[in-house]
Amino acid sequence: MKLIKFNDQILLLEKSGAIIWPEKSTAIISDLHLEKSSFFAKNGIFIPPYDSLETLTKLKEMLINNKVKKLILLGDVFHDSKAYERLEKSSKKIFESLIKSYEIFFIFGNHDKFIKIPNIKFFNTFSEQNINFSHEPQIIKKSLICGHLHPKIILKINGRKISKKCFVYSKNIIILPAYGKFTGGLDVRNKEFSKYLDSNTIFFPLHNNKIYKLTNYL
């Protein structure tokens, strides 16, 4: 767990890739891409059908461990707008128990913008305590927490290449790593990120149930 200050709020960056906002008893996560495997199966690519179960189990554990009450989902929770219907029994059970146990704020992502699920509040953007939440990053004056880009960092250390999902933490913006099991990542050196980075940006790579901190990386 790493502690950061963002817009005068204390936030905790959690080792599985979530942000905990202790003052609001809230967890923030992004890009679960549930049912990505069955989406691929539709195209004849039969990757193992256990991604939703894996991701949701990890999520549930994290929520229980951190004793939060609210959950902000930053979009692309489902891989496509029909993915919710494809959730099979055991995964659906976990998802429904989450709806019952937590107050959920669901921000649409580009993958799931037409999704409908009973008992969930949907938003295009959302804000609380002067912090804005959206799926895609954008340059705004206020502080923004978002996802979408699946940041990953590639380090070259002693000739080894190490590639890890990471948080991107700049003064006005935090970009979350993708929380889903089968989600790939985009190198933070890709030009998609450049608008949101400066020399003070800090990266927090996730690895083996630990979180690391890299300053002065770029």
């Binding site: 250390i157 790579p205 690895h207 083996n208 690391y212 300053t215």
Partner: peptide, 21 residues
């Protein structure tokens, strides 16, 4: 996971040291 942990940790340490954080 084991080796990367080792190198990540030392890399992190080094970077932190470099910038005095």
């Amino acid at each position: 996971s084991k080796t990367e942990e080792f190198y990540l940790k030392s890399y992190e340490e080094k970077l932190l040291k470099d910038v005095g954080l």
